[in-house]
Design a protein around this nucleic acid. Structure first.
Lengths: 208, 208
DNA sequence: CTCTAGTTGGACTATTTAGTCCCATCTCAT
DNA sequence: ATGAGATGGGACTAAATAGTCCAACTAGAG
């Protein structure tokens, strides 16, 4: 069985797809902990156990690889958030979402930050295509938050005039800013505090 | 006249200090727009018009240079924020502070983000000393915000039981998260929105 | 089965980058 | 004035890194 490759339109066997996936996964891991700039192609080769010709067979160089990593990480994050937020329709549900993120980040003492956020701040100014992809991913993520807020609205928990999209933006910013402060402090506390403040504001609108 | 150099304790003439400052300033500019990882020492030499021996005379390599850049940028940011926040004691004053940051960032359509924030997310996981310096700088910045909130408290605008430090953390996170979303979207709006949300929450505590 | 095209290994080159070295020039304390 | 030590220019080396190439192997369509 063969399927089309997205970037060249070449045929792609199952074996080739597997190799490609291994490269992207290894690159994603390395770039998450070392940063994009400090991750060399040789690092990726060593980590994935793949030879140079294979990497250049699947990608035209580092930039395209980074874009593939963004797609890969983005898909995973969006999937995770869809699972976590897709059916939330209560304030306690939002708090449980917060708890899960905070606890997961606490395992690393805040290190490495948000998988999408760190990519975004490192790449947005250097690669316009990557920036657009990341921007799109943040929009999707934020839309999941907006969905929760709309369900709160439908149930009457939030007033009809609540500015859903702006609240979602504020919540997302609190999350990302919290990630970054936690990363710098190597302490998850500021992340917990900032999300709590955003949630407290949302809750304050609902008390009516 | 000679003065002591901080990193080697060597004598340092006025001329040497000037050269050192030129190197740091050029490196700071480059790292702000290109990122730390994409800024090479040769870039710094070209931009500062200084020769290699001079750079290695003043710094032991790239890491020490990055740390000097962090000190330099940190000093400028803290100075700016001290000027902007040092005497603010009203909500409208905080809004003017917000306006200044938003407008300044709008000039670049959000590109490059916060000078300290981008350094933090790029360097925190790679250089422990740099991370500590950045963490300290964020604390100082946040303390300036806390100072404003305490003055609001003293004037009775904020209730005595308001959790000043947590509010300052939340405001800082909103700011940093907003910077990052703006950088990714190349649109300053999310930054404005997220700070507004944090300020709205603070204001909601004051109405009493 | 067999031919075509995808896949793979790894050596090879070119370039970039960090870091070293030496000698010339300038500054300042004595 | 003068000598010690700071400042300066820039060529040089070593290592890392990106990117190329080709021969060998494998999978799948007909």
């Amino acid at each position: 069985m063969t399927t089309a490759d997205s970037h060249t339109g070449r045929r792609l066997t199952a074996r080739g797809a597997k190799t490609r996936a291994r490269i992207v996964a290894a690159a994603a891991d390395l770039m998450y902990v070392k940063g994009v700039g400090d991750t060399t192609l040789d690092d990726v080769l060593a980590a994935s156990g793949v030879s140079k010709s294979q990497l250049y067979h699947h990608f035209d160089g580092k930039e395209p690889l980074v874009r593939a990593v963004i797609d890969h990480v983005g898909e995973r994050v969006i999937q995770r958030e869809r699972d976590a937020l897709g059916h939330v329709s209560t304030i306690p549900g939002l708090r449980r979402w917060r708890d899960a993120l905070v606890q997961s980040n606490a395992l690393r003492h805040g290190a490495y930050g948000c998988a999408l956020g760190t990519l975004a701040s490192e790449v947005s100014d250097q690669d316009e295509l990557a920036r657009q992809a990341l921007s799109q991913l943040f929009s999707e993520w934020q839309e999941l938050l907006a969905g929760v807020l709309r369900r709160l609205q439908d149930k009457g928990t939030l007033p009809a005039e609540a500015p859903i999209d702006q609240l979602a933006t504020g919540l997302m910013a609190a999350l990302q800013g919290g990630y970054m402060l936690a990363q710098t402090a190597r302490d998850v506390t500021p992340m917990a505090t900032s999300i709590d403040m955003a949630l407290a504001y949302i809750e304050s609108l609902s008390a009516g």
